[in-house]
Write a protein that binds this DNA or RNA. Structure first.
Lengths: 365, 365
DNA sequence: GTGAAAGCGCTAACAC
DNA sequence: GTGTTAGCGCTTTCAC
């Protein structure tokens, strides 16, 4: 049996092995083993090796076994670039990864990426991250698309007025959105989203169950459909129980400071006993105001956030928060991606997932 | 001028354009424009187009301009797979992205990835994420390496006993570590790290400046060189000021619960007035204990964490924390990667960066 | 400065 | 079931 060792010297692949082309190489820079090397060692044609890798069912059991052994012995792995060139695929999913938001509790996208990496692996994909360009939001997409560097995109920033989804649709580029097409109900691209309104309904019901009747809402500005959707979860639940909402809602920027200020005003003017917030960031603002006023979260005033961030989890006493099933979302995104890339008929372009409520000390005595 | 529109229909690229091979295609599935298409339109050979893209200096100004215009008109972008195959490079940097840690404040890796994506872009690289395999820690690396899917790796989990760095070195695979080779001082691979001891010295000095003399340490178990390094920052500073350390140190698991318990014990037995912690997670544990005991962070007891996590930033009053310069670390990692991949002589395999201290209410009155 | 030829490693199509 | 042929799109020689 040929003894072969693979590796790279200063970035150049080397191998000590008698090559298929007859050259004898002892740690002289050469390529990793190719299909041809495996074919020669196994005594079959290159195509048979290819079939052994991609369509094993086509081979006779003994041939397959022989080829498998040769692959094992040589440590062969198909060259990605060659396969990509030939099949016009890359097994890569592109996703724009915007800079981290500091000073907030927002990290849902990071958690989503973790899940996406895991879910993609199962489907044979890897995740390629690319940065955004503030001046030209489609630049990164355009570059990757035209150089056929990725098979598809996952788009996560689906806010109002974001041109990416429309642009990708226009380019007929395969993509799945994590987030509903808020600004375009007629959009036909596949998407996966979490039902924020349902999450806030859970939160509000929970507070009602705890005996609260004056439940305040702190959310985002009116031009955020996502924020308005979450807000509707609060208002519907309040109305369903015949509870007042007047003077109990506030719409602010998504910062701790804004949340703190909104909470102070609401406490002074409307005396709520509980707060439901559109984000953990805003909820931390509320907790900040409670801290200043020496009010105990959970005991004096209840607070619920949204996203079940690390902040919610490690805050002393804990912050009750709506948790998005991001692992599940990633799985659904990959599922949609696979359907898209195998040209399966799109039955259901939109998948809406139900969040859960992580109960902690800020809302339970 | 030829009018050309690019796109994909159901994932297949189409173009309405008279092809270089003479076929007239009107939204019939074909490939995106190739070098040959550009060459034809510009009236030059394919190699000249290649040169225009990769070695523009070789062309005469007018030729270059003509080719550039053709590239622009066709919306040409070199096919990545073809280029990768030919050049045996991928412009991809692989990094293992382990599942997110919940229930902790740890998110430094996420922040690092954000920075890495930005820094890589500048050098013409993209970041490819792959999941870990608990049963076989080198599997993901091995697969990508043998299929020549990435040019290099960034290794972030350099804890004791981690086989990846040694394995990659053995495979002669190009990689840069974010984190020192704690277990192998003789390691020759490039690495970038943050001086944790210096960070903790900053923190301890700060507390000393605030008038504290009984400063406790809560760190990790002794088998963590990273933890012991940070701990040394505390002990050296204490000794330098002639302050006692006996009974003021605790080594525990990196969880909120452990931090809380350690703080309770230390408070009962050694009456410290300040805590320095190896992580924000442990610091949150301390804050939890203070909360239970109705002690005010900053006023009654000072607390400093490590990592300047979102948690530290949004905690009411704020948690003072050592901040790692992760943006800078990413830049240094990419720099080392470029040197490695262009076979520049490695002058300085290790880069140690200085952290800063983010001052907040938990340590300042 | 520009062009012609070759080939990277793989798989689709077809022959046997 | 296996082998042969061709070619994906690019860059690297080497002529001219």
């Amino acid at each position: 049996m040929l003894s072969t060792r693979l590796g790279t010297i200063k970035g150049v692949h080397v191998r000590s092995h008698v090559r298929s082309d007859g050259r004898i190489t002892g740690h002289i820079p050469v390529s990793p083993p190719t299909l041809a090397d495996v074919a020669e060692l196994a005594g079959v044609s290159r195509q048979t090796v290819s079939n052994a890798v991609n369509n094993p069912d086509l081979l006779r059991a003994d041939t397959l076994e022989r080829v498998r052994r040769a692959i094992e012995d040589l440590g062969y792995s198909p060259n990605r670039a060659a396969r990509n060139l030939r099949t016009r695929t890359s097994s890569l999913i592109g996703m724009r990864f915007a800079p981290a938001q500091e000073g907030t509790a927002n990290a849902a996208i990071d958690r989503f990426v973790h899940s996406l990496v895991e879910a993609s692996e199962v489907a044979g994909y890897h995740v390629l991250l690319f940065p955004g360009d503030d001046l030209d939001p489609v630049r990164g997409y355009d570059d990757l698309l035209r150089s056929t560097a990725v098979d598809a995109f996952v788009v996560t920033d689906t806010w109002l007025g974001n041109p990416q989804a429309a642009w990708l649709t226009d380019q007929r580029a395969p993509f799945v959105a994590f987030g509903r097409p808020w600004d375009d109900p007629g959009a036909t691209h596949p998407w996966v989203d979490v039902d924020g309104a349902a999450g806030i309904r859970l939160a509000t019901e929970h507070l009602f169950d705890q005996g609260h009747t004056r439940i305040a809402w702190i959310g985002w500005r009116k031009d955020s459909p996502l924020g308005e959707d979450r807000r509707s979860g609060w208002s519907t639940t309040m109305h369903a129980h015949g509870l007042p909402t007047t003077g109990l809602a506030s719409r602010v920027e998504d910062t701790v400071q804004s949340g703190a200020e909104a909470a102070a005003v609401l406490l002074d003017e409307s005396a709520p006993t509980a707060f439901v917030c559109a984000s953990d960031t805003l909820a931390m603002g509320v907790l900040h105001t409670l801290w200043i006023r020496q009010l105990a979260p959970g005991r004096d005033i209840a607070v619920v956030g949204f996203d079940d961030s690390q902040v919610a989890q490690v805050f002393p006493g804990g912050l009750t928060s709506v948790r998005q099933p991001l692992e599940q979302a990633a799985v659904e995104v990959v599922k949609a991606l696979e359907a898209l890339l195998t040209h399966q008929p799109v039955e259901n372009p939109g998948v809406l997932l139900k969040p859960t409520l992580a109960l902690r000390g800020s809302s339970v005595v």
